[in-house]
């Protein structure tokens, strides 16, 4: 599968998911359990993505500058920093530690 094909397929599915909510009768999908699982899904996916993006390189578990970036991001969020600042601090932490030679 080419990168373009993957992008177009993912975009088509994303749009179809939005549109289907306007087209299907609502009572088919309502219910406390469905609601709870819908809320759980993003939490699980985002947490799993953070973990793999931070601690995995080419299938190996590693601890490097990315872990420090995540720690700094969490502290910034605790202090109610805006999203863009959190991202910039994450980049600065990883770049700074590598520049100083303190982490790979």
């Amino acid at each position: 599968m080419s990168l373009w094909a993957a992008i177009l397929v993912a975009a088509a599915i994303a749009y179809a998911l939005k549109l289907v909510g306007y087209l299907v009768p609502g009572h088919l999908l309502e219910g406390a359990r469905t609601k709870r699982l819908t809320a759980a899904l993003p939490i699980a996916l985002l947490a799993a993505l953070i973990a793999t993006q931070t601690f995995v390189t080419d299938g190996a578990v590693v601890l490097d500058a990315r872990a420090a970036a995540v720690a700094v991001a969490a502290v910034a969020l605790l202090l109610r920093a805006p999203f863009i600042l959190v991202v910039v601090l994450g980049a600065a932490t990883a770049a700074g530690l590598r520049l100083l030679g303190w982490a790979s």
Partner: peptide, 22 residues
């Protein structure tokens, strides 16, 4: 991208997306 810490930025961005849900 690594020397600019963009991999750290990616992880930080995901933490920012997850945070309000916790």
């Amino acid at each position: 991208p690594r020397s600019w810490g963009l991999d750290g930025a990616a992880s930080a961005a995901f933490v920012g997306l997850l945070w309000p849900r916790l």
